[in-house]
Design a binder for these strands. Structure first.
Lengths: 345, 345
DNA sequence: TTAATTTATGCAACCGATTGCAAAAAAAAA
DNA sequence: TTTTTTTTTGCAATCGGTTGCATAAATTAA
């Protein structure tokens, strides 16, 4: 095993012995317990410092059965949005004395299940989850419910009596965006969605469809494309559109990655945006301002979502907010209009 | 405190009692110890399942003084590169029975120091670090050296006798890229670098400078711009270039974000890439293939770097590789030539 | 059938902080 | 000075696996 030239670890017993007091006093002193005289505390801290003491989290966890740790499971870390979300969570958590354990499901239910087990074994006090693409149910979180470990979904959520949800109003955002496209003169509007089992995509689809409906446009089956919203899917979508005899005059894609890829492939095939077709995305990724023309999209602030999720969880953990734990918290979004949907007159 | 309607936790003692055997046997059985008869193991596992037993990590950690946890500190999570790195680390770690604790320094030394303390208190068995932008020294890792906790730097590294480094050959990559620009006919080549205290930027600068030198081009002080390589810095850089009386005919920027922003701002000011000026970046971010023209850059595979870093660390932890722990491991990179540097004839 | 091996299991002392309760010390009241 | 009250501090059991060493059980050899 490991090179074991580490010297013996210093414990509160060592400090107690050196100071001729009891370990109990040291334990209390170190955590600033009011029953300990200031003078004693000072001596304890000084001695701890002098001996190079480090607190043993495990001994405490073993005893208290709490870890002051929050588990986070997200599909992927590599988006500005997720990074922002996590930064927000970290801020709130650290201020409240909690640590974060982060893991990514890489969009598969299988990995998500493994992550859940790991989190469970690491005895996180609570869990913040945004569901993977392929997740079909949430039985893998049952153990958390059984043990009364609070679980909060954010962004990609699941309706469950035990779980508050933190989301944006995907329905409304899609409705607004679609209405805007109609207002720009579009009549044949396609929608590229992700897995409709995920709330974010089903809600966006519904918002889109209802906007059509409310504007007297009959939704046609062929206008809906469901795929994984990857860049490759964007290219496929463009090819599909290109091959249509009756082409759409606008496409609303449920994320920016796919929208951008689609737009570029359309352009390569001589279909220009926004001249020939309007394109809009969702998320406001950095690429949206790089692609030409710049992409119209929906922005929602990640830090806010992360903060809200962490705050809600910590309130639950501290026993506050039991009286009024909201089932769903909706954060605000904003439509960002750029050149990709500005029909030239 | 928390709603405490959780039932009593099941322990190996409960399993032992139910099966009329000793806790020691249960403990060994659960971890598949060869000294336990298969039949006994089967009974143990079945009983554990039946009683809803969950392993207590803390009791083990307390006893073994190992956590099977690896700490990871990175500047930011929100890049494809970092996400890839972490995916690679996770793969190798999980296969070897280790968990990852990930935190981001958000490019500041202050946060990095805090993260280091957290990791230390969480008793990670080892640490994988890529340094923040503003980090000026590594005293905050001294406690790890003192306790003989292995620390490996990757990408943004620091030379230290105790720490293996996992990097790419930034010098060579920059040298090759610059040579290529010269070959394309460029003679007045600017370089936009990040903080020169970070190896990645100083090495890229040196590679650039030596390539000039070796091609008989005299490096001029004004050709070097040092900034934070953000998008805003890219715009500033473009404005700076625009204002020059004697403009460069090529710019080599040390990352893609900044390169792209710079390119776009140049374009807005009527300076066209690659007609008027060649632009190259570094990293091969997704935006490099979205911007027009597509950006020439240097690719290096994150997963490989993550895997290598984790492997090296785990070898150290397991006591292998002590005889030949390399001080520096260099991974391969590749020059990716795209339109932004193709001078039209 | 008995002795020599091999295999399987148990004993019990750890790891280090926590905390209810009791007792000692110090301060205030009588 | 004695008694009462308030502060401080200590005792000791507890959390739940782990593991060296000893012993019992099962197998094999004699």
């Amino acid at each position: 095993m490991s090179t074991s030239n580490e010297k013996k670890e210093v414990t509160i017993y060592d400090i107690a012995a050196a100071l001729q007091i009891s370990a109990a006093t040291v334990s209390r002193g170190l955590k600033n317990h009011p029953a300990i005289k200031q003078a004693t505390k000072d001596r304890i801290f000084a001695q701890a410092e002098r001996m190079g003491y480090r607190f043993n989290t495990f001994a405490r966890n073993l005893r208290t059965k709490r870890t002051y740790t929050i588990g986070v499971i997200v599909p992927r870390l590599n988006s500005m949005f997720m990074s922002d979300v996590i930064a927000g969570m970290e801020k709130v958590s650290n201020e409240a004395g909690y640590e974060l354990i982060i893991s990514q499901s890489l969009e598969t239910m299988e990995k998500e299940m493994k992550n859940a087990v790991t989190m469970f074994n690491n005895r996180v006090d609570g869990l913040l989850v945004s569901l993977a693409y392929t997740t079909t149910g949430i039985d893998h979180f049952k153990r958390f419910f059984d043990k009364n470990i609070p679980l909060i979904f954010f962004d990609r959520v699941f309706e469950h009596p035990n779980c508050p949800n933190i989301v944006i109003n995907n329905y409304k955002a899609a409705y607004e965006l679609t209405s805007y496209l109609i207002q720009q003169g579009a009549r044949r509007i396609m929608h590229v969605a992700g897995n409709l089992n995920r709330n974010v995509y089903s809600q966006r689809f519904k918002g889109y469809r209802d906007a059509l409906l409310d504007n007297g446009i009959q939704f046609q089956e062929g206008w809906l494309i469901v795929n994984n919203l990857s860049a490759e899917d964007g290219i496929h979508t463009a090819k599909h559109i290109y091959a249509l005899t009756e082409r759409p005059d606008a496409v609303f894609v449920a994320n920016d990655t796919c929208a951008v890829a689609c737009m570029q492939e359309l352009k390569r095939n001589g279909i220009y945006v926004p001249k020939d077709i309007l394109v809009a995305g969702f998320n406001n990724d950095p690429i949206a301002t790089v692609v030409e023309p710049n992409l119209t999209t929906v922005n929602y602030r990640g830090p806010e979502m992360g903060e809200m999720a962490a705050k809600t969880l910590i309130n639950l953990l501290n026993g506050n907010g039991e009286q009024h734990t909201a089932a769903t918290i909706m954060l605000r979004h904003e439509l960002i209009i750029r050149d990709s949907t500005q029909r030239p007159q």
